[in-house]
Nucleic acid binder design. Structure first.
Lengths: 218, 218, 218, 218
DNA sequence: TATGAATGAGCATTCATTCAT
DNA sequence: TATGAATGAATGCTCATTCAT
């Protein structure tokens, strides 16, 4: 099952490291499906248990509270979503590689996140829906972003500005425009209208062109 | 109270047409505050009643169900949010004026929505959070957009393409990029980080420049 | 309106003695209809008010509580239902007339009650449904029956027994059988299956024959 | 506890087939007591729970709604009340045995129902009180009676008429008089005045004599 | 007198969570 | 470890009743 594999991958599972029992995976799958369809507050543990084919008590054996279940789904996503930028080698890859040009940087960034959202759209949806309601989610996210990513991102932007490749706007604004543009395309494709017939590659390419042109120094 | 005025405006109230009693406005205000802070499902009518300073029963005298209360908040917003594009004169103004250039069109669009989101950020937040969970919200929104706005928008885009002002990408993609970019900036400013010290005008101008450059035909 | 006339009659109204306003009659009618359809406990004053075309508060201006409304409907019925046996002249007519025979007594009794239940079936239904749940109804009823009716009824029965017209069973049992038989026919015709095509006169005659034969001394 | 045994019997329980838990029986007992004392609509689940010594939530674990609780009490009664006449062997016993005479038929019928009502008077009271307010109860009852019982009953009556044992009145009327008379006695004894000192056997015998004489062809 | 908005206690029902098995 | 019956607080909603107009 793709979903299951994707889930295992998200949880960094491999056959040697079977920390999660079959039932536990069933619970996680069911919770992801339910949370993403109805939202966290409108999902009942009873429904999740039924969908997972386990007793309601079983959920609470693995997760002390319903909120812990939410966190156990969303936290690894956050780690993976932002983690790469934190991890030294990857951050290097993204931010420290001597890109030939700005477009290469953007393309690298965009397709990297594209793969990610494509594989984990349900969990991304949950994260987006819930993040503003739960400080346990919001705070580490902000902290992570500000402490590890923003500075590196900013440095990269400044480099391209100094190289006269891109406009001289405030780096914060440029970062925001980059993130908004990529995120906007990904959300449109995978969350807002997943049923539409997207030509994914083409949309990504146009998004990249748009971004690069929009920020290019003339 | 600003909030109150904004609410009245949203409900198209004027002094001659006092359809809403003081208590009813209190209920609406309290509901907007609670829904936007906690989400619809996590807000209890008991809490809303307390915040509004009325008895719980009073809420149900005005709104048959909790969901009706949500709809009564969000529906007028939808009407106002999309309505202008539907109304003949305004649609003309936006889509049929012979703009000198593409930038003028974008600036007009962007600042028009800027004023709107600035004044109704709480309700906009509720709409965004809840729209995907309630078909009663989703369906009329989609219908309205597809039937009234999309075609006019597309025609305008094609006109600028024929005038060789903007790139020859699929109009759907261009529309998406325009909406995403403007919406992204507005959400960042008013919903994601409302507490930050935004230089609103400047951010808007840069967003417009970014959009225009990104889509300009070279 | 027949219903209305019947109601006025039940309330002993005449044109000279307009104690009841038009609104009050509307309320009583609506209450009778609702109580008899849904039962007292399942009827809401809100529904009664709507049906009567008055404001909910108006009901409580005339009747301090919902229960008082019930009592005001059912008490006059009880008075009329049992009253005749209490009133001196009527009691004489029923119990003290020198009937030629037992059959004449039964026929007199049966057709007298027939007219009554026919005209007031809704209120009779309410009385029957509610009497066992409300001591305010039950107790005066029992008292009235035991103090005023039972003894006279018993004396009449004994007279027919001494005249060797009817069987020598305990008078209590005979009274019970008479009441059950007449009541059974009336309930069948007017409450249990009012929609059926009853040949009322014939059913009454057969009921009387059955009663007379069943109790005749052979 | 007699009540409990009677309840178990009604639910066709035996030691091998313990489908009902102790708590569930407690809930049913409490519900029967409450419904029969106050009526369905005036009984609160809160009160039933307290009387049963369980949490309110426990009721709804076993019965989805309050109405389902009512039906679960009353439906088995209906099955048992009318069921015998439906079941082939019993229907034979009642309707197809070659009775020596009409009296034997009536006695058989009367004592059979006597035992039943004696054992289940509370539930019979609930059924009678509620049947006219709930179509879920009324419809199957009418259907059952009309389809299975009425025709057989009628055939038996006609047989006795052809044997010149009973009067030549419409069979429908005769059936009604029989049911009313037996039901009237049983209701008087067990529901209307259960506290009185009834000489049950004697009352039953007199009721039977009354019925037989009343319908005997002279 | 009549209104109908307002009340808050009470209702049936759902929920996350516990715990004996 | 897994179960699922049991819990009781909380929920959305209804109700009879009050009261200012």
């Amino acid at each position: 099952m793709t979903q299951n594999n994707s889930l295992k991958e998200l949880l960094r599972l491999n056959t040697n490291d079977e920390k999660y029992s079959e039932k536990q995976l069933k619970i996680l799958e069911a919770a992801i499906e339910t949370f993403s369809e109805k939202g966290y507050a409108a999902s009942s543990t009873n429904e999740i248990a039924k969908k997972a084919g386990v007793a309601e008590g079983t959920i609470f054996r693995h997760y002390k509270t319903k909120k812990e279940l939410l966190l156990s789904i969303v936290t690894p996503l956050m780690t993976k979503l932002l983690g790469p930028f934190v991890a030294k080698d990857f951050a290097k890859e993204i931010f420290e590689v001597n890109y030939d040009n700005f477009e290469q940087f953007i393309r690298n960034l965009a397709f990297n996140r594209y793969e990610f959202v494509k594989n984990h759209s349900s969990v991304v949806k949950i994260l987006i829906q819930e993040i503003s309601f739960h400080d346990e989610l919001k705070e580490p996210y902000i902290k992570l972003f500000q402490e590890h990513i923003f500075e590196k991102f900013k440095a990269t932007i400044i480099k391209f500005q100094e190289a006269k490749e891109i406009v001289n706007w405030p780096p914060e604004t440029i970062i925001r425009l980059i993130i908004n543009t990529i995120a906007g395309t990904l959300l449109s494709m995978f969350l807002l209208r997943p049923e539409a017939n997207w030509r994914y590659e083409e949309e990504m390419e146009l998004t990249i062109s748009f971004l690069v042109n929009g920020l290019k120094l003339k």
